[in-house]
Design a protein around this nucleic acid. Structure first.
Length: 401
RNA sequence: GUGGGAUUAGCUCAGUUGGUUAGAGCACUGGUUUGUGGUGCCGGGGGUCACGGGUUCGAGCCCCGCAUCCCACCCCA
């Protein structure tokens, strides 16, 4: 038997999946976002320059290969880079103004699979270009909160600010000199991080490192006045809109392009892979990808991780089930179902059955009405219709069904 | 990439110290004295015990390998 590749699943819980897309799409549109779809395959350089070569995603997790035209390409490991590429390629950066996109689709990362971590997984994401106000950051967070609330998903929101090109380099320097002082005591990973992306040491899982970093310079204490004011405003607007959050000094997003606001929504009910949404501001990325400097902010939601957390709406009976009790009436009920489908859902049994079996089948099919032609009805050109919710039934002429 | 656990029917799982023809519940399917479902009763089909080797008179059970899933690390949505 041929199996799907490791970490790549068929989507069989399609009702939950569809319902999530439906709810998230509706809310994103309410916030003024419109749908964008970009290719699954992109030039490898796109991700090297945006996500960053120091990240694990680019460093060791990409499905990368040389195609038949000798292009170095890879399956997208995340969604933002492609949207930014499309934004720049379409010259929206030069046109100016604001642009707001949402998307959903598969992402690919070659990782060891476990619960909540697949090699092909699906994200719903949103990107906003041209809006530098921190209120847009707050709006992003409120949009996610709306989506999760609509789906009945509980969460905790972690918040941090990474600073901008003004204060971040300075902070990085003081962090590196701090690391130099305790270089002998920190773990191997952190020693490597010191040169590749020092900020990431803050997120180190080693207890020993974390004990040492208690005395490390704090991001939030080193923000410039602009970043600090923005962060204060962000907290204020979230509070006044009843969004609960916790400040997490160690929240460092794993992609290199983030600056200023960084946030992560986590769930305590799905195991170790607890991040269900993450995002932040990336004001420099458009420039990195050869566009005109444009402020931007976005987020992504991991759909598979949410699926089991979604509270589905109660299913209601819907449509018709048609059946016949004698072979000679089967073709007639097929025609009736065919006509009914112009306006409603209709299923039909191709086999003649006794009434009890038809009712069972109609119930299983979750039909609202069970419409049956038996011996008597067939003679009289009538059909027996039962409302399965109200348990009422009537016999009506076939022309009236 | 590292460490640990698991894998028996479509699903959830039993299966004794290695010993005839591998079981249950659910699901599916057929019937159930007169045409009434979601909740009665009786029957039926369905298994290369993940896969490949090995030990043994004999392996679902013991050993080795491998694949996948799960858990933790790591990473992140």
């Amino acid at each position: 038997m041929i199996q799907s590749l490791r970490g790549m699943n068929d989507i069989l819980e399609s009702q939950r999946f569809e319902y999530f897309i439906e709810v998230a799409t509706k809310i994103a549109k309410n916030y003024g976002f419109s749908y964008i779809e970009t290719p699954l395959l992109e030039e490898t350089a796109l991700f090297k320059r945006s996500v960053g070569e120091s990240s694990d995603i680019v460093g060791k997790e990409m499905y990368q290969f040389i195609d038949k035209g000798e292009n170095d390409v890879c399956l997208r490991p995340e969604g933002t880079a492609g949207v930014v590429r499309a934004f720049v390629q379409s010259k929206f950066d030069k046109a100016g103004g604001t642009y707001k996109f949402f998307y959903h689709g598969p992402m690919f990362r070659y990782e060891r699979p476990q619960k909540g971590r697949l090699r092909e997984f699906h994200q719903f994401g949103v990107e906003s270009f041209g809006e530098g106000s921190v209120y847009e950051d707050a709006t992003m967070i409120m949009m996610i909160a709306d989506i999760f609330n609509a789906l009945g998903i509980g969460y905790r929101l972690k918040l941090n600010s990474l600073g901008d090109s003004n204060c971040m380099p300075q902070y990085r320097e003081s962090l590196v000199s701090f690391l130099d002082e305790c270089i002998e005591e920190i773990c191997e990973d952190c020693q490597r991080r010191k040169s590749t992306n020092p900020i990431r040491v803050l997120d180190c899982k080693s207890e020993k490192c974390q004990t040492l970093y208690v005395n490390a310079p704090k991001l939030l204490n080193n923000l410039c006045s602009v970043c600090n004011d923005d962060f204060e405003n962000l907290k204020k607007i979230l509070t006044s809109n009843n969004i609960n959050f916790e400040i997490d000094n160690h929240l460092v997003r794993g992609l290199d392009y983030y600056s200023k606001t960084a946030f992560e929504f986590v769930s305590d009910n799905i195991g170790a892979q607890s991040a269900i949404a993450g995002g932040g501001r990336y004001d420099r990325l458009v420039e990195f990808l050869d566009g005109k400097a444009t402020p931007a902010v976005g987020f992504a939601i991991g759909i598979e991780r949410l699926l089991e957390l979604i509270t589905m709406p109660e299913t209601v009976r819907d449509g018709y089930y048609f059946g016949a009790m004698d072979d000679e009436a089967v073709e007639l009920v097929i025609s009736l179902a065919q006509a009914k489908r112009k306006t409603e859902k209709a299923t039909v049994s191709y086999k003649s059955r006794n009434l009890k079996t038809h009712l069972k089948n109609a119930d299983k099919a979750n039909a609202q009405y069970c419409a049956i032609i038996g011996e008597n009805e067939f003679k009289e050109n009538k059909i027996w219709v039962k409302n399965l919710d109200e348990k009422t039934e009537q016999i009506i002429p076939i022309s009236e069904i």
